[in-house]
Amino acid sequence: MRMPVGSGPDDASTDGPRKPGPTFSVIINNYNYRTFLPEAVESILRQTYEDYELIIVDDGSTDGSVAYIESLGGDLILVLTDRRGQARACLEAFRHARGRYIYFLDADDVAFEGLLSAAALAVVDEPAKVQFRLVPTDAEGRPFADPTPAITAEHDAAKQRAEIYRTGMPLSPPTSGNIFHRRVLEAIGDIPYETAIDGITILAAPFLGAVVSIPESLGAYRVHGLGHSAHANPLDAGRIGRDRERFSGRINHLNRVLETLRPSARPVREAEGFFYHWDCVTLEAAVKGQVIGPRAILAFVARLLAEHGLTRFSLRKLAWLIIAVAAPGPVKLRYVRARMNPWPRRRVQHPPALEGR
């Protein structure tokens, strides 16, 4: 059924008492992904666990997506927004959600049929987040790389908090590899500074409760040329600059959440105190053909060694810095392409088969 934006059911409000709802609210977020959307929808309808509701939020598609969704019928909830960006569209859909746990599935990704069953076992003790691996696939759904990220069952909230304090971000899958307790969404409020839903949610969750990591692959993450992520246009200097700015927005947002809900927690240092900020500075300068100044060079090296020590990762980053400072423009741009789109070099000779399809 179609739900008018801004007028969700009384029992979906995050204020006041709610009627009992399902364990999971699955929110498929879509914008002009009519090509992939049916597979995402079918992957939810095939779930072996049935205590869920399905919400699809369409953020102003012009490719026939809405007509397709309306043709499905059934009990699904359709929420229409008008180019708010993924984050705010997902938050609008959350207003209509009744589940204790919220699963945001990108419309170009796929959930394996046992995903919700595995998650149901993991939420018994009410963690703030459940995360799991995803199998990278190409546009046709063929796996081409090892499951990501390399999380283990020991990757808990304490470990993620330590990673955030050290590097500004935890090891976490992208949107479709996370399920959040609704209290996480209630705690973060609005996201006015970026369009991604998997930013502040991933940062805030380990401060708001336990994190359960499932080392198995429970879904597929599609990598394709139609994507809205950076790898689709690696030489977009504006995009790199926005990545730097949204990183700062996430850190500031997290500190506001901590100040309000976890005042005893140590605040996270400002964005310029992290290596990621200075890495973005070098990438942006390389794409624009600008000279990287001494301050940026020193900050890049200092933060890199402080956060990662002298490791293979650090050596690769130092090699990039030398290229960014001294190499000819075409060489810099070639390396930027490789940096911003890592998937070709992650391909494996014998990729894993898709599980649970």
Rank of each mutant, 00 (worst) to 15 (best):
H224L: 10
C280P: 01
L235A: 00
R266E: 15
L208E: 06
V281E: 14
A265N: 07
A271C: 13
G293L: 12
Y193P: 00
L305P: 00
E186D: 15
A306W: 06
G249N: 01
P263T: 10
P215E: 07
T282L: 13
E259M: 09
V184S: 03
R183W: 00
L203H: 03
N252V: 08
T311R: 15
H224M: 08
K288N: 15
A210F: 01
P192V: 04
D279P: 00
T260K: 14
I200C: 02
A187M: 05
A220W: 04
R312A: 14
A299V: 07
L298V: 06
R303M: 10
H277Y: 15
P234N: 10
V287I: 15
V301F: 14
W278C: 11
R222P: 13
G249F: 06
L304S: 08
A296L: 00
S217W: 12
F247I: 11
P267N: 07
P263A: 06
S217T: 15
G309R: 06
N233W: 04
A196N: 14
L304V: 09
F313A: 03
V268H: 10
A285V: 04
H277M: 07
G238D: 05
I200D: 01
A210G: 07
I188S: 02
H277R: 07
R262Y: 05
H228P: 03
I188P: 00
A196P: 00
G225P: 08
G289S: 02
I197M: 10
G209K: 07
G309W: 02
R242E: 06
N252A: 10
P234Y: 05
A204E: 01
F274W: 13
A265V: 13
N252T: 11
R303W: 04
R269S: 07
R242Q: 11
G209E: 11
L208G: 03
E245Y: 09
I191A: 03
H228L: 09
G273M: 12
L261F: 03
G225H: 10
P206V: 02
A296E: 11
A237C: 00
P263F: 11
I200R: 02
V268A: 12
L235V: 00
I188A: 01
G227E: 07
G219Y: 05
R183Q: 04
A306N: 08
R250D: 03
R303V: 02
